[in-house]
Amino acid sequence: MSLGFMEYEAKDNIIHRMDPRTKLFFMLFILVGSIILRDLFSLALLVLFGLCWWVLARIPISKLKTLVMAIMGLAVLFTVAQGFFYFRGKTPIFYFLGYPFYFEGLIFGIAMSLKIIAIITSVPIMTMTTPTQKLIVALSKMRIPYSLIFILTTAMRFTPLIMATYSEIIEAQKIRGHDIDKMNLITRLRKAYIPIVTPLFISLLRSADELQISIESRAFGAVKKRSYVEEVKIRAVDALAIGVMAFLMFAMIYGVILWGTAIPQANPIPPWLPVPDWLREIAQWFVFPLPDWAKPP
């Protein structure tokens, strides 16, 4: 159960060099997109956009595969369920035990799965390319109170420790004949976890106590304006990336309000806006009328 695939790995490429705030904005962008977009084509573009970042960050495809495999089960289940039960289903593709599996449901299911995939694959872009100490400074520059930042980073620091303690406790109880791996599901649920969870909680509470002494002894909370030894700076590449994403976000919202999809169904520039003709022509290139089956519900 190691979160190893999400941990920071030092590399030198454009994404690694970006300010953490840019990457946070990226995550926000993906989040907003997956919430407001509903049609297959727009969502596919969103996921594609995220994948570009994966490639630029040089994250090995194997990590992407592991992640997607983990979600795949859920995605397939969802798609199958929608195929049979989608209320707007009209066109059956095949029959299973007499029940129709609808094309509309299939499309809807895939679209919903893409939403989940988009969000989940956006997280490693942040976690695998940003060292924690830079993230801390970035968050502080965003005026987030240090106590909250500290809670986040302490949780990150203690998670592996908790997992290690959990393994040690499991071992410790194994040698008393309490082997949870060998118990069936019912027994497990009934009594397996108390001898594991109790010592775990107690050890956590103890650690929290000792942590308190350590941080107080090092002046935690002494001064309102805390200094930071690490530095982050917004540079040209960050401004560019944020600018592009901001524009795209505007375009997405605009498109969804007008046509229910991010892909322009008509020339996006309104007729009353005074713009040069060549600009209107360029805007026309992006118009792509969606086929009926791909239209948002």
Binding site: Q133, I136, R157, S207, L211
Partner: peptide
């Protein structure tokens, strides 16, 4: 273990 809690 409990006195050290920063990333680097």
């Amino acid at each position: 273990e409990t006195q050290i809690f920063c990333p680097t």
